[in-house]
Design a protein around this nucleic acid. Structure first.
Lengths: 231, 231
DNA sequence: TACATGTGATACGGTTACGTGTCAAATATC
DNA sequence: GATATTTGACACGTAACCGTATCACATGTA
């Protein structure tokens, strides 16, 4: 913001280092702290009930540094959403990569990891699945870009197994988005009701949904009935 | 709140009538006006951006009458959610009742009505599908009761077509909730992106999802492939 | 007409959070 | 050790909203 890096009057000091770290490093660390604090507070008590002061207090910083990294609390929410979503997706990819050849195993591992992550990280899950809806100004972008990665992941998983051309890409994308929606919605209800339902029922039910879609798409291995009536 | 209905001193007047209507009638009308105003404002500009004063102004009433019917703005949101949900469900039931015998037609009519309602009533759809998430204190109940009606409707539609015992009721309920979640999620994205996607693609994609579930459940009429690859 | 109640407009105090500014202590460079 | 920058703690003014209270007017009953 100030004048060029050369000394203004006597050219005494200039290096930007402080506490052993460069300016950009410190700035990034502060931002990181704020995001972490935002994830905790927003996920725990909700976006509407989380003030900027509270986030700064939780992060051990002051408001000055909040506005250094974010223009508004909504801005922070978007950042938190991105961070948690990334972690969530990574965990799913990690859990599914061993089963890229077996679509049944792939689906089961993905579903178990999805619900397992939610169960183990209820605050983060609440953040990305419930509180993120509060971002009015950027809701469209959230749905269009970051959340699209999840859909792309799903489509990418599916395409190698497709026997024929299948339905058009647009239809396939709708199916994938619908599948993601089913998962998210079940998780929302699960969270909202205090995880009372056993995770096995959720996995089994969603397996039927995914299995039905697999059969609809003619994917081998899903054509025969995947499970007995009262599995 | 005051003393018994008998006259306090001289027993002059007491009837509760005003402007030709009984007290309870006027009270109900005021509540109705407030709910209508809430639906418009919350649906249009979001729950967080809707103040009680604004709702009263929109309804042509004053704050006194807001607190006559509601204890908080969240209370109003719940009431609005209930009113719109009821209307939404009624419209779907009305659109589907002519096809209770033909499951294919039933699904198609239901889906078209679902997306059609959202398209025609974007504010109301935004209210029940997005803003309702803001009700932190009663989220669990929303998911448990009122929203459960939709799931029950779906299960009720499905059961008559089931050939055998099918999966257990718990699994069936999960599948139904997932299906509802797929619909809601697709609608959310549709709203957030300004209804750019053609409604036919959404209907076709969700038909595949429902069709897959129908095949998974062994419902006659869904066993053979419901549509060609590039329908 | 006289009076009690319903109604509408508005005022008030209290609370909360935002966004910015000030000032002293800590740190690094000369 | 001296100076400039970074940092932390805190104060300040502003604005919005909530929930309640006040007051004059409208409406209905005796």
């Amino acid at each position: 913001m100030e004048l060029p890096p050369a000394g203004t009057e006597k050219g005494r000091q200039r290096s930007g280092r402080y506490a052993g770290k460069a300016a950009s490093t410190r700035q990034a660390e502060r931002r990181q702290k704020l995001v972490a604090a935002g994830i905790v507070l927003i996920g725990r008590q909700g976006y509407a009930a989380t003030s900027i002061d509270a986030v700064c207090s939780e992060a051990g910083l002051t408001k000055r540094y909040f506005y250094e990294s974010f223009a508004s609390s909504e801005d922070l929410l978007v950042a938190c959403y991105g961070a948690v979503t990334r972690e969530f997706l990574m965990s799913i990819m990690q859990a599914t990569t061993p089963h890229l050849r077996d679509s049944r195993q792939l689906v089961r591992a993905g579903l178990q990891q999805t619900f397992g992550y939610v169960r183990k990280n209820p605050d983060k899950a609440r953040l990305i699945m419930i509180e993120a809806m509060s971002v009015r100004s950027q809701l469209g972008q959230l749905y269009g870009s970051r959340y699209g990665e999840f859909v792309d992941l799903l489509v990418g998983f599916t395409k190698p197994f497709l026997p024929g051309p299948g339905p058009g890409d647009a239809i396939l994308a709708v199916m994938a988005r619908g599948a993601v929606g089913a998962l998210i919605h079940l998780c929302q209800g699960w969270i909202a009701t205090g995880f009372k339902q056993p995770i096995e029922e959720l996995v089994a039910g969603t397996e039927h949904i995914f299995g039905g879609m697999g059969r609809d798409l003619g994917i081998p291995g899903w054509v025969e009935a995947p499970a007995g009536p009262a599995r």
